[in-house]
Amino acid sequence: MKRSVPLLITAVGGFALIVAYFIPYTEALGETVAVWFDILAAIAFILGGGNLLKQHLKKISDRGPGWGYSGVVIGSFLITLFIGLSKVGVPPLAEFPDFAWSGDFIGIGTPFWFIYQYAFVPLTATMFAMLAFYIASAAFRAFRAKNLEAILLLGTAFIILLGRTFAGVALTNWIDPTGPFAGLRIENLTVYIMSVFNTVGNRAIMIGIALGIVAVSLKVLLGVDRSYLGKE
């Protein structure tokens, strides 16, 4: 019961979508399964939040290293959640003034919007911006033209880096753009590399990944791969 029912649910859910792809009469069944999936995805957000709370509460109770920061996590989590779920400071929609809960929870000027605009945006955007600095450091430390393969990688990177800025245009401006050697202008080389070599390489990778995903999906649907069910 604990393992056979989940295996059955997996197969039914998956094959319902596959069958709907081939038989138009079963399209509605596929839609229903997909809608349930979409709703569960939203509930997974709650599960994620609950898990975060659980982990950090445990860290605080264990007084593990950096438990004070776990307090900050929980504090910011609960404040944001309370403001978001209870629509604090959200006016009702102008066309429905009598419905206090009808307002737009992310409306401009609401407390939830303040959290988004002045905490979420600067924090997440700067987190990702940091990668620019690390990629510069990696460029200095990791790339060595030791062999032909590395030279090809570096050479391509140079052409792309130059060709996607004005530097590429300026460096090969002397080549006639309508002449027989126009293809050697760096900006044109960039386009050629992207549309031919990059396409070819990624196409092969794509075919390989697709085969892998099809194989794994089949194994899951047929019950060959049961690792997602965990131990007995």
């Binding site: 460029a139 790339f143 060595r144 990177a157 130059l162 996607r164 800025t165 530097a167």
Partner: peptide
């Protein structure tokens, strides 16, 4: 935004070349 792109791209190229010269 293409302005900072230009200078930063040249910097990355410069860093790679410098690292290879040392190597």
């Amino acid at each position: 935004r293409m302005g900072p792109q230009l200078v930063a791209h040249l910097l990355i190229i410069g860093l790679i070349i410098a690292a290879n010269v040392i190597f």
